[in-house]
Each structure stands twice: as structure tokens, then as C-alpha cells.
């Protein structure tokens, strides 16, 4: 599973992407987030921000969305373009 981070999350965690192999019983984004928070204090802090948006394979997803081993899952703050 490929995890990518953008903007403030990327800066706080200190990496833009990482390959992870979460336990097979993790089924949803919410469960994946909890698991990722255990990877380091920086992960825990960044991923606990009040609003963290998620995309699965480059489409917006939600906390309850299902995850798969070959997904690209992105976490990022609310967007500020335009």
C-alpha cells in the first residue's frame, strides 16, 4: 500500500510518501489512520489534525471507505488553491 502526504502533513511527518504493509484485518480509512498514527509521534500529531482529507487512488474518499493492499491512499489538509 502506498501512502502519500501533502502540504502541512508532508512537512510534519517529514516524508511525502511511504510504502506500508498494514495488518490484513484493517478494512477502512479510519482503521488505517489509527494504525498510521502508531508509526511515529510525528505521524500521530499530523494525522490528528481537526480536518484531514483522504483520497483513494486519486478520488476523494471518507473515513468509512474500504481500503485494499494495492491502493494509493493520500492524506492532506483542506485545499487552498485558486
Amino acid at each position: 500500500m502506498k501512502i502519500v502526504y501533502f502540504a502541512a502533513l508532508r512537512r510534519e511527518i517529514g516524508i511525502g510518501e511511504e510504502s506500508v504493509a498494514p495488518p490484513a484485518d484493517l478494512a477502512t480509512v479510519a482503521q488505517l489512520l489509527d494504525w498510521l498514527k502508531s508509526r511515529s509521534p510525528a505521524h500521530a500529531k499530523a494525522l490528528s489534525a481537526p480536518r484531514v482529507l483522504v483520497a483513494i487512488n486519486q478520488d476523494y474518499a471518507g473515513q468509512d471507505s474500504a481500503i485494499a493492499a494495492d491502493d494509493e491512499i493520500a492524506f492532506f489538509p483542506p485545499v487552498t488553491g485558486g
Partner: peptide, 12 residues
């Protein structure tokens, strides 16, 4: 532009 600002993944 309204939807671009709130949906397209850009960060300043």
C-alpha cells in the same frame, strides 16, 4: 472558481 478553490488539491 468556487469549486476549484474548495475541491482541487492545491495548497498555498
Amino acid at each position: 472558481i468556487d469549486w476549484l478553490k474548495t475541491r482541487a488539491p492545491f495548497w498555498k
